[in-house]
Nucleic acid binder design. Structure first.
Lengths: 198, 198, 198, 198
DNA sequence: AATGAATGAGGGTTCATTCAT
DNA sequence: GATGAATGAACCCTCATTCAT
């Protein structure tokens, strides 16, 4: 036959790949835009495609969302892993926190928007992200860069959730992000006196 | 009031008032319960009423949710206002933060669940809450109880959003809440040296 | 309250019962009419109801079809059971065969139209029907009314399937039905000589 | 022919003919396999072709199915015509009945699966088959091989439909087929006494 | 006035057909 | 000419709102 046949494996036809990317980008764009309802029709229009096409490209709406969010979280996870390799544990944590906020501020991925959807990949990647943040924190504690009177797990949740919230805030701004990191890092610094009584 | 078919100024029928309260309580209960879908039918069943009754009592589903959330935020707002009258500005802020977290942890009002709904009263009351928190922070800064190198607006958002996130976290616990307040207050304490360079 | 409240149990509101019946009748009518596609919309229109209503009345389209077919098979099953109680086993079988054909000729329930649908009640009732026919045949064989050189199970399938087909035939008529029963009963009569060599 | 872009009377390209055959074989195979859904995609995969190719080869899905079923019925029709030429009318009828059952049992062509499809050729060929069976029966009646107190048309439908049903039965087996033919031929034998009163 | 039921708009998904490679 | 992908129509189902009891 005269079919190009391509290399055996994943790579499908050029336009299929292109449209898959278009759908993915559209989903990511809409995930970044606050207040969107994430209907298949909306994503399709954003991508300049038909509704059935985006479903076909991923099999199901959930799978598309899953892929989009996972995709968005990818670079962030990579940055977290790079931070783990940096020399100064305290500076690494501080630096990553800023990235975390800035990234999420630019993307607006709402946990709640995913409620009721089947997004196994996203769940997985979130766990990875959380684990890496946990490691970053533990390393900073071991190095004496941050206080040790809090359990690493507590600190992980605290930083993760708070950073997430700050990023998503309507008033999000570089100034806010910087303020958050400053306060957090100051608050996490080894304290001279005993902590305040609860 | 503009209630149809009712004599002006005349109190509504006793059972109408009672049903309105039942619906409101049901909505509040479901808002407190994580993972609920907030369908009219669900609320009605929880209230022991018919679906039509619930809608009729508020005219629309959105109005009911609006009233319920506003209602839930009421005591919190009152507490914030009481904190403003306390003597020690720092302690008042710290105390309110804990209340804020505990309250939200117990009520699970998700901003995102309200996305796409018309909830003007809720928006209003949230602004009031935010303003009062802003005042609490300004007062603490004026009294030298917390650092002044951050704009009060920034600090307001920071505390409000972060507290909200901590409360909503799946791993939410008293230990986490206490840790959050400790770190925040330590971080917000007037700092001896210059803040970390950005 | 002044709610009628009715008797505790199944009986719901009068119109609900009425509409449930309308939907059921509509489905039965369409099952009787050859060449129909059995769309929810079609059934609803036939019933003079909205599409959502007929779904709500049964929870799902499949459940509606299931109920309709089961309903149609009910009287037939009852007749088979009555035939079992008759005195003359041969006449009972012959009589039931005629009923089987006439009934099915009037209803046009196609196994294949149900393909891919979840109809557990129908499956059950069909098995009952088949079992009762099996008993009718066994009894006739035991009484010497029909030949015994065929396994009852074979005869059951033979009569059941053939009667079914005759009933569904486009040229279906009383004459055809009578002819079928005559031939079958004659063919099933105990044969004087050995059966034809295959 | 009206094939577009082809010189009149010119044979089509070799691979086009080959693909048409592949599609036809695939459809026939799937028609023989019970419980298949007969989607274009499924047929194409079975043929090792693309979906568009299958459609293009026949213009429409219905045309493909029509051709496939017609093709399947071809040999059966030829066998019926050969039976007409045999010496013993009774044996010819009996022989053909067995073939009819075996053939259909092996092919699983469901009338109902064709419901809603435009299959004019199939309809035509079915009529031919029915007519030939009618002739077989008339000839057997004329020869005194089978009873004459039934109208040939009635007997035709009776045998045709019943044989079809027996073939399609889930419990289909050689034993069942043989039993059917035995009973039918015994029942059709010229009867000594008057037929049973209806 | 209260309510169970009816409904119409809208969602996701499938599939025969058409298009572009 | 063959084909994988695109698509729009159609289907079943959900739910906030309206109706009739």
């Amino acid at each position: 036959m005269s079919t190009p046949k391509a290399v055996e494996g994943q790579p499908r036809r050029a336009d299929a790949v292109r449209n898959r990317r278009l759908a993915l980008e559209a989903a990511k764009t809409l995930l970044a835009r606050p207040g969107t309802t994430l209907k298949v029709e909306t994503i399709a229009r954003q991508a300049g495609l038909g509704a059935a096409t985006v479903v076909r490209a991923f099999g199901t709406k959930d799978a598309l969302i899953d892929a989009a969010v996972t995709d968005l979280l990818g670079p962030l996870l990579r940055r977290a892993q790079e931070a783990l390799a940096e020399d100064d544990p305290g500076a690494a944590l501080r630096g990553f926190l800023l990235e975390l906020i800035n990234f999420q501020a630019a993307h607006w991925i709402m946990s709640e928007q995913l409620e009721g959807l089947q997004v196994p990949l996203t769940t997985l990647r979130r766990a990875e992200l959380r684990n890496t943040l946990h490691d970053l924190i533990s390393r900073a504690q071991d190095a004496g860069a941050i206080r040790a009177d809090l359990h690493p797990a507590v600190t992980t949740v605290l930083l993760g959730e708070a950073a997430y919230a700050i990023a998503r805030s309507n008033e999000s701004s570089p100034e806010l992000a910087a303020g958050f990191v400053t306060v957090m890092m100051d608050g996490l610094r080894p304290q001279p006196s005993a902590p305040h009584a609860p």
